[in-house]
Write a protein that binds this DNA or RNA. Structure first.
Ligand code: MN
Ligand code: MN
Ligand code: MN
Ligand code: MN
Lengths: 219, 219
DNA sequence: CAAAGTGCCCAGTCACACCGAGGAAAATTA
DNA sequence: TAATTTTCCTCGGTGTGACTGGGCACTTTG
């Protein structure tokens, strides 16, 4: 049974390796995202390596083993299913669920997760548009584009967010840019890469590059 | 923030003190129900005492402080609300929920529990007939009688179980003695205190003293 | 090749939970 | 009351998990 901390490490390593496929994940990077010291990370990496959850060779970065990837994906599955529960059943807003799910993802009952999945109607996406891994670890890579990659004239529907911080999500709510919103890019300011967009064939707004880099759309 | 173990200790101490009001809870008794050694218990009692969660004077037994009772009742509240969720929403049987709830009761989000309570329709009783403490710790002491205290000719409705072990609950299911079942005592065998009962004005069965001591009824 | 950057290793800390043994204190019994 | 039994505290110690600063080894880059 993996500890809470181990699950958090594996999840972080999985996400980092997804962000840059092929590249091994570095100690400093892990320390950064987990808000801890490199020495602590090395310590944990050694232990996870001994448990066969990742390939650990000193100085070479790490990559997850099959088992490690499974634990990571299962943890992500639990996290996202609980988020769906919180939003769809308990009436949480999408900016309120992250911390709670961060704790619930460590519950250890496969039966519970199977029944929850069924209760929720086998959702495929969490409230932030992220795909929910299956029990066997299968996960669908969604076909998204970043809004920042759109050219003037192109349009799309908001499908997911890259960032789940409270201020960002609240900004999106206020701007009318929740999941499902229709976006049309009118103009791009080359100086700072901000975009002029039309939302839902209606209001025209200017969004910064910081925003457009964290929003996914599809046609 | 109390640790899992601390919450388990406080819950156990609360239940023991409820079982025998007025009597201080003894170290050995706690060790017994928590399946650990008296030395470990003394250790934890000292720590909980320092934290102001219980009154601890060596050799005198312990009793909970106001704060300690609050933590205990909150833990029990969480446990029982999750049990209701598991049974009413996820389709668990009442004999499957205990271990899962034992883990879920340690989640630390008051908002989550408030929303869950609302989602469940503010239930007053858990699937075993036990009362659910309010958020402020208020708890209704149900007016029950043990089946073992019934005399021939008396009857009642099954309202709660004293024991939540899997074999006991499965026995009750099979015998048709779930919550709500109507019982009429026909005869009592003075030798072993077993009872001949009629269930739901229908089948006549013999139940042992072991069973009747763990079943509550009300009129 | 040298400098800069990265990450390992060491030695240690701290918190938590647990335990056996021995003897002190309290309760019970004679 | 005295002796015996029971309870349980104290002590010293174990093990695990997680974290850390500092020094140095290794790798990368210029
Ligand atoms: Mn977490
Ligand atoms: Mn999410
Ligand atoms: Mn518990
Ligand atoms: Mn219960």
């Amino acid at each position: 049974m993996p500890s809470h901390t181990e699950e958090n490490y594996l999840k972080a390593i999985y996400k980092l390796s997804e962000a840059q496929p092929g590249v091994e994940v570095s100690t400093n990077r892990i320390a950064e995202v987990l808000q801890t010291r490199p020495a602590s990370v090395t310590d944990m990496l050694r232990r996870l390596g001994e448990k066969g959850l990742l390939h650990y060779e000193r100085y070479r970065g790490v990559s997850l083993t099959h088992d490690g990837r499974r634990v990571a994906l299962l943890t992500i599955r639990k996290h996202r299913l609980w988020e769906v529960f919180l939003v769809n059943k308990l009436g949480f807003n999408w900016d309120e669920v992250h911390d709670v799910a961060e704790e619930m993802e460590h519950l250890q009952s496969p039966l519970l997760m199977r029944r929850l999945d069924e209760f929720l109607g086998f959702p495929q996406l969490d409230p932030h548009g992220d795909p929910i891994p299956a029990e066997d670890g299968a996960i669908i890579r969604p076909q998204h584009r970043l809004v920042s990659d759109l050219k003037p004239g192109e349009e799309g529907t908001v499908m997911a967010v890259k960032n789940t911080s409270v201020p960002f999500l609240q900004y999106l709510d206020k701007a009318g840019l929740s999941l499902g919103a229709r976006i049309e890019v009118l103009d791009k300011v080359t100086f700072d890469n901000s975009l002029e967009i039309r939302i839902n064939n209606n209001k025209v707004t200017l969004i910064s590059n910081e925003i457009s880099c964290n929003l996914f759309v599809a046609d």
